[in-house]
Design a protein around this nucleic acid. Structure first.
Length: 766
DNA sequence: CAGTGAGCGAGCTTCCGCTTGACTT
């Protein structure tokens, strides 16, 4: 048995550290928190000082058992969890769960996994900081109280199984408010004038710095230019520079992997985890931009030998993120000497990104020379401007340039040689109508960036939060096709001014976040009744109080009480006195019956309704595809009411066409046949003959798929489905064990299987 | 996973922040 037991949070970290310490040390991992509030029930004694009822998490029972055994036989237990609020709490929970005596327990901390850092930590042990632990408890308890009191309000006022919380509800709010800005946005247009000159066989592009207001101004301007002389009236050169971006944190890695590799936020984390476990990179959940001295020195050597010493520049970066706790290093390669690794494609690509970013962060600025050329027009007051940019020293640009979210980045190239006073030969000028853009929709990664700016969420929760708001149906990630839009272009060429209409595609989106109707309704309800929690600054405000608790200036239970007492009253009041939230919006009146038409959330999702509550003859229809309550028009609603459509009779029974949960279909009796739009079948136009044809074809197909029927019970049959043979008993489907031949099953076998399936516990969906 | 085209309604759902693993039909 080892004399010393060291406990860290992650097994990969344990392995590394074990190598740095002698044989007297055993290093084990706690796999994160070992105790927590139970997942069902509030588990906080609200009337008894908010006492939390912690328990060892189910998946940590084994870990705790093993650690306890090792701790008992060790002389000293070193708690080496992260030096932040959560890490301190993990150490405290370990003391409680493992029954550690204070005399044999030491608390140590280090910010980088290097031998000197760890040896230094061992020489400077301390005790568990109970104030910091209390700050974590306050955080944990506040989140539980908010989440477990707000969510049930939504179950009652909107829909069961919904959720709300300090972090996720603000994330949804950000998406909803952006969408509202986009809906309200009215694009305006102006004309951008660009002149192209020929300079000794090369091209010079000059642009009006101010846009022209409308078509007539564009026409006037081009007429002025027609026959004008174009003269260079000024030629200015100025130096410029670009500096590299800081090394990666979780959030910037997610953003950059999204921009450059098209990774989703969770994909980035999965790939990074693999790189971490194989020892290629440092820890991937961090908010720190700091590099260890060892890494900085290695970067300097690598850069000098690969590119030359003039490319190396040692830099120290400071975190700008609100609430950064900086318990780790930035994300970097563990060995900067390795610029390429042998692994699967995505690991390679992500490693490459991390390597380049880290190396570039320790490189010199790029130096530029910027040129601005002013061009006078003899018959116009306006001036054209041409801009050029030349890199005079590449610096870090040799390795890496950070991506940008801005879609309209224009590259400024090199200008042809020019002199002041020079007369330019015009090729042509265009004045093109350009429209203003609505603010951009968020991607997963840009939402993470926004959350980080607000200090909401932590590196370990960005990816889970993004997936929670999608799982709850508040937000969907979608790509959408744009729509064609016409624009005007004026052209001056060969002394002629003409104009024409062109078409562009606008509004196309690729993997962007859209709020759903449920997301909007839930958000509006929460903002209306719980504005304090939904405030963008709520987290920042409570973080300040957590800091005071951590400093020992405030008692955690008092802070919680000051929050909870008014909060709970608001919850009770909401449960009793607020109306059900449906997001109802009146679209107009039916032109035929004059009945009002509403869009709202129904029991089965967004729907439209014609006629009021007491109306016996109400009509309903579900919204389709990309339609939403906030944007559906009266015309679109009237289209939806045309379904289900009666096509006529066949074999004495009616055939109807409609759109269901799984797309358009025609129905005859109990038989449903899907309509495939690719084949030109549309429920609004499909005719009786075509429907009969489809129904007959489906009958044939079904006949073929029946393997066996039973005389004893005509409701039971064996059928070949998409996933192989199964037993159909009325509405119930039963799988057939692999070792049984479907054809050979007797009626007794089948009834037995059906009974067994009925008794078996239902699998829970996750 | 689940083989579909609901509509009755018992009992359950839910938070945030640490960390990885994954029994078999």
């Amino acid at each position: 048995m080892s004399k010393n037991l060291v406990i860290v949070e992650s097994p990969a970290k344990a392995k590394t550290i074990e190598g740095y310490l002698g044989t007297d040390f055993t290093v084990k991992s706690s796999y994160g928190h070992v105790r927590d509030l139970p997942s069902n029930g509030i588990a906080i004694a609200v009337d008894d000082g908010y006492k939390p009822a912690y328990e060892v998490s189910a998946d940590k029972k084994q870990v705790v058992k093993e650690l306890k055994k090792l701790a008992t036989s060790a002389e000293v237990v070193w708690l080496a969890t992260d030096e932040d609020r959560e890490g301190e709490a993990i150490s405290w929970h370990l003391m409680e769960a493992l029954d550690l005596a204070e005399e044999k327990t030491r608390r140590i901390v280090f910010h980088e996994i290097t031998k000197p850092a760890i040896l230094k930590a061992i020489e400077n042990p301390r005790e568990v900081d109970i104030n910091l632990v209390n700050a974590q408890q306050a955080r944990r308890i506040l989140d539980r109280l908010v989440g477990f009191e707000l969510s049930p309000v939504l179950w009652k006022k909107v829909k069961p199984s919904l959720s709300a919380g300090r972090v996720q509800s603000v994330a949804v709010r950000i998406i909803v408010e952006r969408e509202r800005e986009i809906i309200a946005f009215i694009p305006t247009s102006s004309f951008r004038a660009v002149a192209l000159f020929d300079v000794d066989g090369r091209e010079l592009k000059g642009e009006l710095s101010k846009r022209l207001a409308d078509g007539s101004e564009a026409e006037t301007f081009l007429n002025e230019c027609n026959g004008s002389d174009f003269t260079i009236s000024a030629l200015e050169k100025s130096p410029g520079k670009k500096s590299p971006a800081a090394p990666f944190t979780t959030s910037t890695l997610q953003q950059e992997a999204s921009r450059k590799l098209s990774f989703s936020v969770s994909q980035t984390m999965v790939v990074a985890q693999k790189l971490y476990e194989s020892g290629r990179i440092t820890y991937m959940r961090t908010d720190s931009v700091n590099l260890s001295d060892i890494a900085v020195n290695q970067a300097k050597d690598t850069i000098s030998s690969m590119y030359g010493p003039e490319f190396a520049e040692t830099r120290v970066y400071k975190s700008k993120a609100k609430g950064a706790q900086e318990a780790h290093e930035a994300i970097r390669p563990t060995d900067l000497g390795i610029s390429e690794i042998d692994a699967d494609r995505n690991e390679k690509r992500l490693y490459d990104l991390i390597w380049k970013r880290t190396v570039a962060s320790q490189m010199a600025d790029a130096k530029l020379e910027k040129t601005t050329v002013t061009i006078d027009i003899s018959k116009s007051e306006r001036q054209l401007i041409a801009k050029g940019e030349v890199i005079t020293f590449e610096g870090f640009l040799k390795v890496y340039l950070e991506g940008t979210d801005d879609e309209e980045e224009e590259s400024k190239g090199m200008l042809p040689p020019l002199t002041q006073g020079e007369n330019l030969k015009l090729n042509h000028i265009t004045a093109t109508e350009r429209f203003t853009h609505h603010p951009p929709r968020f991607t997963e990664a840009s939402l993470v960036k926004k959350l980080e700016e607000l200090g909401i969420g932590r590196p370990s929760t960005y990816a889970p939060t993004i997936s929670t708001v999608q799982k709850r149906g508040y937000v969907v990630k979608e790509s959408r096709d744009g729509k064609p839009r016409e624009y005007t272009q004026w052209l001056l060429k060969e002394d002629n001014v003409t104009n024409g209409t062109l078409t562009e595609n606008t509004g196309a989106e690729n993997s962007k976040l859209f709020p759903t109707d449920i997301g909007m309704v839930v958000n509006d309800y929460l903002v209306d009744h719980f504005d304090k929690i939904l405030d963008y600054n709520f987290t920042a405000n409570v973080e300040q109080e957590f800091d005071e608790i951590a400093d020992g200036k405030k008692e955690w239970s008092k802070m919680i009480d000051a929050f909870y007492t008014p909060f709970h009253t608001t919850v009770e009041n909401a449960l009793e006195n607020t109306a059900r939230a449906t997001g109802e919006r009146e679209l107009g009146k039916d032109p035929k019956t004059d009945k009002p038409i509403f869009a709202k959330i129904g029991r089965y999702g967004p729907m439209i309704q014609m006629g009021l509550g007491e109306d016996e003859d109400k009509k309903f229809a579900s919204l389709q595809g990309e339609q939403s309550i906030s944007t559906i028009t009266l015309e679109e609603a009237l289209e939806l009411f045309k379904l289900p459509r009666k096509l006529g009779e066949f074999e004495g029974e009616e055939i109807a066409a409609a759109i269901g949960r799984y797309g358009p279909y025609v129905r005859h009796n109990k038989l449903f046949v899907s309509l495939d739009p690719e084949l030109g079948d549309d429920p609004l136009t499909v005719e009786l003959d075509r429907a009969i044809e489809l129904i007959k074809a489906k009958r044939e197909e079904q006949k073929k798929s029946i393997i066996k029927e039973f005389e004893e019970d005509s409701d039971i049959r064996i059928i070949i489905g998409r996933y192989g043979p199964y037993i159909k008993a009325g509405k119930q489907n039963v799988r057939i064990p692999k070792d049984k031949e479907p054809e050979s099953l007797t009626f007794e076998d089948v009834t037995e299987l059906i009974e067994a399936a009925k008794k078996a516990p239902k699998r829970r969906k996750k």
